[in-house]
Simulated assay, not measured.
Amino acid sequence: MKLITYNLYNIWNQMTVMAEKCGRNPQNITLLAVSKNHSITAIKEAVSVGQYSFGENYAQEGVEKIKILDNPLLSWHFIGRVQSNKSRLVSEYFDWCHTVSCFRIAQLLNKYRSCDQKPINVLIQINISYEETKAGILLEDLPELVRKISYFPRLKLRGLMAIPKESKNNNSSLMEYQRLEKAFNQLKDDYPDVDTLSLGMSGDINDAIICGSTMLRIGTSIFGKRHQSDRELHLPGQ
């Protein structure tokens, strides 16, 4: 069995076991394979065993992969910081944007999304750990941004995303996750399309599932570490 295939089966199994322990349906949790800086060959192996959702951090790199693979079964998620000058690429080519954290970016995504396309699915990024160096809004600012996004016809608000602070204190991390879960549940009560909590990476899969995550963003544990010699795409400016 190839390494990526082996890794995917292990993660799917971990997700299933943990979800069932929590009384959750594993089918309600999506595995988002973070494929940034990984080759087309690696992505094709993942697709061959049933992995269809992929996350990219860089707009140009992601668009190149979307064009090359040209597979309508795949769902492409932009999970990096949206730069104003790359917002058109994100809006035109990606199915999801996880990192909306201000009115201006929401406005640009709505502007560039074609009327011929389905609305782009968006998540609001929350700075759950109050870190100055991390993108995202504070929870107390969430209602105002949600209200503004709701007026954009080419955006479909699906939920929240966060990248919690790395901590050796598991109780502290769980408290942050629980605060986000509470905000997510409140948002679901008010907005019927909200169904996605993007929380959890390779090192915190179990905690994220316990706290209601519906989408896990996993990269290295699937694809391994990226080596420059493996690079298949030459993408200027990335």
Rank of each mutant, 00 (worst) to 15 (best):
E176C: 04
V34G: 00
Q51C: 07
M215L: 15
L138K: 06
N170K: 15
S91Y: 03
V194C: 06
N85I: 02
G203C: 11
D207G: 01
G62D: 03
L145G: 12
M215G: 05
R113W: 03
H38G: 07
G62P: 00
Y58R: 11
P72D: 05
E176H: 09
E64W: 11
G237S: 03
L32A: 02
G136W: 06
D95W: 01
S84D: 01
N170R: 14
S213K: 08
A106K: 07
S172L: 14
E144H: 08
K168M: 05
R217H: 15
Q107K: 14
K168L: 07
E131Q: 13
I66V: 04
K21T: 11
I124Y: 01
H38M: 08
P143R: 03
N37Y: 13
I11E: 12
L187S: 12
G136A: 09
G50Q: 10
K182F: 04
I68L: 14
R226V: 09
S150P: 04
A106I: 02
L157H: 14
Q228S: 14
S39H: 12
G23E: 02
L142Q: 02
A59L: 00
A42W: 03
G237K: 07
L233K: 01
K168D: 07
F152Y: 15
Y130M: 09
L109S: 06
S202G: 10
M215Q: 13
D204K: 04
M201S: 07
D190H: 14
A208P: 10
C97E: 05
G23K: 05
M1W: 01
K165T: 06
K36N: 03
N28I: 00
I209C: 07
Q125A: 03
K67C: 14
V49R: 09
T5W: 08
S75G: 05
T41H: 09
L8W: 08
L74N: 06
